[in-house]
Design a protein around this nucleic acid. Sequence first.
RNA 1: UGGGGGAUAGUUUAGCGGUAAAACUCCCGGCUCUGACCCGGGCAUCCUUGGUUCGAAUCCAGGUCCCCCAGCCA
Length: 565
Amino acid sequence: MVDTDTTTQTATAAAGRDFIRDIVRASLESGHVRSVVTRFPPEPNGFLHLGHAKSICLNFGIAREFGGTCHLRFDDTNPVKEEQLFIDAIQRDVRWLGFGWDEHLYYASDYFGQLYDWAEHLIRAGKAYVDDTPPEAMRAQRGTLTEPGQNSPFRTRPPEENLDLFRRMRAGEFPNGARVLRAKIDMASGNMNLRDPVLYRILHTHHPRTGDAWPIYPTYDFAHGQSDAIEHITHSICTLEFEDHRPLYDWFIDSLPVPSRPRQYEFARLNVSYTILSKRHLTRLVTEGHVSGWDDPRMPTIAGLRRRGVPAAALRDFIGRVGVARAYSTVDVAMLDSAIRDTLNPVAPRRMAVLRPLKLIVENYPEGACETLEARNHPDDPDAGVRPVTFARDLWVEQDDFMENPPKKFYRLSPGKEVRLRYGYLVTCTSVEKDETGAVVALRCTYDPASKGGNSPDGRKVQATLHWVAAAGALAAEVRLYSHLFNRPDPGAEGDALADLNPDSLEVLTGCVVEPVLASAAVGEAVQFERTGYFAADPDSRPDRMVFNRTTGLRDTWAKVQAKT
RNA sequence: UGGGGGAUAGUUUAGCGGUAAAACUCCCGGCUCUGACCCGGGCAUCCUUGGUUCGAAUCCAGGUCCCCCAGCCA
């Protein structure tokens, strides 16, 4: 008891601050709740995305911070849309994000029997009735936002008849859509959810878990709160659009002999600029082939972000930065990139990779010769060690690092200019080779033999340090550069969101050359290509033909300077 | 007078009657064997109009704008 209190206080002090956590803290301190129990309730009809990540971090995070429990519960009440494939993917993604549920894995379908009994309970209490009204007519009877609805002619059906009909619905006697079970609440309510909501509908559909055991399925409203109650959830946290379902949520809890009294709290869902986080749209992107799949690195899905190389820690950090509130908002996607860089910068090993190669010939370096130099794996972390890099006469440098007629602010290579080849030598460009069309095909340089390692004895400074790869031994690679999937910050604001798809969201570079050590880069593991960005090997990689995904670029001040001129 | 919510820098969020804080973005500068990282500096009449108060982003009253709800989806 004393230990429990101490634990609670410690956890309480350690937890973050937002209005939900304030509520949890208060309920714990007041003694209304002894131990917090939350739940993450995905519907298995798609892959998890950034919006779910917020909910996952909130629910599992609160349980962790306050010494409570968080359940993973699949909201599988609509077999028409749900699949085992998604159930598996969701579990994989939640785990990858860094959360676990121990034995607390549940399915709303686990409670179909109990839910059915409670439906009969409502019928006997005169609080629910079987309605034969066809869908279109029912819609017409519901009224509008400003006009009250009309009572269904079946609303006064006696309980015995309702019970008989409902049992026959359950027995599979009627076709899809023939009848529904409705709660008898108030057809004149200003809250549309209270105008006799549907509790059960007839669906002769195979369910991933219950098979063909049920020809009727409960609706979200009838299943969710009661599932919470069965699991003794203390804080049922959901998004704002469920706010006006709360009176209904409470109506069921008050009308049924449920074993506990959960409370629903709502927060604003996450929106991110230049992306879309609606399952309907994401599903279309996949099924219509606009992306390669749910795990396409451009997708805002957990699986897509993972494949792109985004670490789980970066996602958690991002969610933390975004905060939790009740105000509608759209977060700048730049905040995600920032979180990714901040997570990767201190840990990602540095490598050299030339994305758009330009040949550089060191004229005064002996032909056929080469030497091994030492490069640090991380400039700020000596413990990261060093690796050998080969220097030779023929090298590759980045096309962007050379300009024949440079503007004043251009620090890199140009005729007559001296720069440093990182961890190598200082080189000075002496001449340029061009093809018939006038395009630069190679640079000729001289190197200062005394500058081995990158510094000359006389201490002279150069303005730029370039990355490079020796031609001999270089590994060929494909590099996939990703940018926003949509070309406007608010896709869909003017019509169909898919019309705002960015046709240039994927750029595939096939002629890249990278350091030989990259042959052993593990899939999904982040590295920094110096001066370029963070990358991770894609599952498509093969030892002799690596494929790298750009997770995110480095901040690029030069690009900004350039853009302004 | 349908019901329910929300308004603090360009973007998210903090602030809970004592004179607006942080992160991201952007701009200026410094440092630098990554034009990265890092370090300085800059960027807000707190939606509005009144009221209460010595004092209001915070309390009260009235406006304005935005979002959600008329699935047998969740």
